[in-house]
Computed example of a mutant assay.
Amino acid sequence: MDVLRKRYQGFFEESRRSLLNMTSEITYAEVKFKNESTSLGTKSEPSAAPKEKTSLHKTNPGFPKALLPSLLILLLLLAISFFIAFIKKDWSCCPKNWKPFNLNCYFISNDTRNWTESKNNCSAMKSHLLVINTKEEQDFIIGNLDEKSAYYVGLSDPEGNGAWQWVDQTPYNASATFWRPGEPNSLSEHCVILNKPPRSSWGWNDVTCKELHRSICKMMKIYL
């Protein structure tokens, strides 16, 4: 953390020095212009000059000053963009033994519990039972599972009427599910596991909530 903070402070210190150098150069240019104008004025009386040129000489010294606020704003926007990108890239992390994927962290339990106990275990770790939103997420999860085990996910049908719901209140989309063929197949089975039977692929299966299985917890990455 100290190394990252020093890198960030170094970025702002370098930007501040660049801005001071830029300001010094602008001031030097103004002073030089004024000195040259004064010097010319003492040597000889200038010949009659067009009004347009006189007006131009009066407005030129102020032109760099008009640019200064714009440069300050640009520098500030660059610093903010750098800070946001730096945090998202380097300051996000997952707890020990959790697996990162996109913006989330996943914990695969080795212990077996019923569905309610699994749900409470995730809550105790400031997370929730797995909610699957995309095929990419499903593929990532199954790539880290043991084919000999089954895992509770955060999908259930408490009333037994086919009204499936996720533990985090994400709307259940029947067209974006990963049920194994023929599942769900019983109104008496209110909870869902992710498993891979022999000679079959990974998928969801409804089971009774009292069965003992491993589980998967999910939380958002931690930003320091």
Rank of each mutant, 00 (worst) to 15 (best):
E136L: 08
S15E: 11
P69M: 08
F63L: 15
P50K: 12
S70F: 00
N161E: 11
I142A: 02
G41W: 04
W202M: 01
F86R: 09
D206R: 03
Y152T: 10
K88F: 11
A150W: 05
G143I: 12
N102Y: 12
V31A: 03
V192W: 06
R7G: 13
K43Y: 12
E45C: 09
W91P: 00
Q9C: 09
L103D: 12
E147K: 15
N60A: 10
F83G: 04
K218Y: 02
P50H: 11
E211C: 08
I142C: 01
T208F: 05
L129T: 03
L103R: 11
A48L: 14
K34L: 05
E159I: 13
S156I: 02
V3F: 06
L19F: 11
R5I: 12
P181M: 00
A163E: 13
K221G: 02
K58N: 11
A79I: 00
T112G: 01
T59P: 01
K6D: 13
Y152F: 13
C105R: 03
R199N: 14
T42Q: 01
S44K: 05
E52F: 07
H128P: 07
P69W: 01
Y106S: 13
A48W: 14
K135A: 03
T54R: 09
D206T: 11
C94T: 04
T38P: 01
Q138D: 02
Y8A: 15
E159H: 12
D157H: 07
A29F: 09
F178K: 02
P171W: 05
T112C: 14
E137G: 11
N205I: 02
S123L: 15
R17Y: 01
F82K: 05
F86D: 15
G162D: 01
F82S: 02
S156L: 11
S201P: 01
T27P: 00
C217P: 09
D168N: 14
D111G: 04
N161I: 11
C191F: 04
T38W: 12
F83D: 14
G162F: 04
L155C: 06
K58I: 15
S127E: 14
Y172R: 01
D111F: 00
W164N: 00
V153K: 01
G162S: 04
G41I: 07
H128I: 12
G62E: 06
A66S: 13
H213P: 00
N144I: 07
T59I: 12
I216W: 09
K210S: 11
K221W: 03
T27S: 00
A29P: 00
F63W: 07
N120S: 13
Y8E: 14
S175L: 15
D111Q: 07
N110Q: 13
I141A: 10
Q165M: 04
D146C: 04
N173F: 03
F178M: 10
P171A: 13
N121Y: 06
L130V: 02
F33R: 07
W179L: 03
L56C: 15
T112A: 09
K218G: 02
L224K: 08
C209E: 14
R214C: 08
G143V: 06
E52D: 10
I84R: 08
P64Q: 10
L56T: 12
A29N: 04
Y172P: 00
G62D: 06
K6M: 08
K96A: 14
E36V: 03
G154E: 05
L224D: 06
S37G: 02
C122G: 07
P95D: 09
T112L: 05
T134K: 06
L74H: 01
M1L: 14
A124N: 14
R214A: 13
T23R: 14
